[in-house]
């Protein structure tokens, strides 16, 4: 039954994403696009953290690498698609170069190295004016124009983002379900056993990190034309922490976790606007409570909730969780 339901739900979910911006203000379309973009970045980090079990604190810098690469190329007249591919390639390679030495040593060292790297990236972006525009940043990046489909308005841009998101998610689905992806999972659950079964732990972890970084680059390639302005502050360490929180809050290791986590950070402030300055405090407290009672994140919480109900009540349990968001 489950197997037959999944495609239907996929279609329903997609349909919801398609109708979501209709009749909404420009602001909402913009926010929704930004949600999907952060979900892509979080999806990448989810591979590193949720499947390979390594903390990375450099996802914002990979978004930055992608954003600057795309901005520089598109400003120089290169079309968006090759710019995006270049952005992903650069992020992937930097990820490899950064992860290779860090993963030699076990423990939290990838976290330390990525933390240092993110701050270094910020300094370089700010100081190298000739390339990055320094603290003023770069602006006026064109939005992609695919002959009949021009993304200058926010609605087409949203659909463009959605299309990229769907492709990225499908690729990620493939990666996670491939023998490769199973190796990731095996790695997280039991690294020693995985190794004894002939999995090259280090190589798999490194690949997970580099692919996750490339997803960061992809998100950057989308932010560049969405905001049409980038400056170093948007890619500082705090942003990396923000994305890490998205992944964990959504549910690290769950495929749709990042989508929820990004929603918590990007969309929830809309509902909590009446709390004014207290929003961040509420959010932070909620994260702490979540970590105490359900460290596996919102989806984990949903599962725990479901187990309390009989199968007949399954749907209601899910609905309840959704409305709690």
């Amino acid at each position: 039954m489950k197997r037959r339901l999944t495609p239907i739900l996929l279609v329903v979910g997609l349909a919801l994403l398609i109708v979501a911006p209709l009749g909404q203000t420009d602001y909402i379309k913009y926010i929704l696009s930004s949600w999907l973009i952060f979900a892509i970045a979080a999806m990448g980090l989810n591979l590193t953290l949720g499947y390979a079990g390594q903390i990375s604190l450099a996802q914002a810098s990979f978004i930055g690498i992608g954003a600057y690469t795309t901005a520089l190329l598109t400003l120089a007249g290169v079309p968006w698609i090759p710019s995006m591919l270049a952005a992903m390639a650069v992020s992937f390679l930097v990820g490899l170069a950064l992860g290779f030495p860090a993963l030699r040593v076990q423990g939290h060292f990838l976290a330390f190295v990525t933390l240092a790297f993110n701050t270094l990236f910020y300094l370089v972006a700010r100081n190298e004016d000739w390339l990055t525009g320094g603290p003023y940043g770069l602006s006026g990046m064109p939005r992609p124009d695919f002959w009949l489909f021009d993304t200058n308005q926010n609605l087409p841009f949203y659909y463009f983002t959605l299309a990229v998101f769907v492709v990225a998610a499908a690729l990620m689905w493939g990666i996670v379900r491939s023998p490769w992806g199973r190796a990731f999972k095996g790695l997280r659950e039991n690294p020693i056993r995985a190794e004894s079964l002939g999995v090259d732990t280090r190589r798999i972890t490194l690949l997970a990190f580099a692919i996750g970084s490339a997803y960061g680059g992809l998100a950057g390639a989308l932010i560049s034309p969405l905001v049409q302005f980038i400056n170093p502050d948007s890619f500082a360490l705090v942003q990396s922490i923000r994305i890490l929180l998205m992944v964990v809050v959504g549910g690290a290791g769950f495929f749709f976790g990042p989508l929820f986590g990004a929603a918590m950070v990007i969309l929830l402030p809309e509902f909590l606007r009446f709390t004014e300055g207290y929003y961040l405090m509420i959010y932070a407290s909620a994260v702490i409570v979540l970590m105490v009672f359900c460290p596996s994140g919102l989806i984990g919480a949903g599962q725990a909730l479901r187990e309390r109900f009989r199968p007949g009540h399954r749907v209601r349990g899910d609905m309840k969780q959704g409305s709690q968001l």
């Binding site: 996929l10 769950f254 968001l325």
Partner: peptide, 18 residues
């Protein structure tokens, strides 16, 4: 699990759009 994630997403969306 997948189904549940989707339903939750749907619920989130419904509230979001409203």
């Amino acid at each position: 699990m997948k189904r549940q994630q989707f339903l939750a997403a749907a619920a989130l969306f419904a509230t979001a759009t409203l």
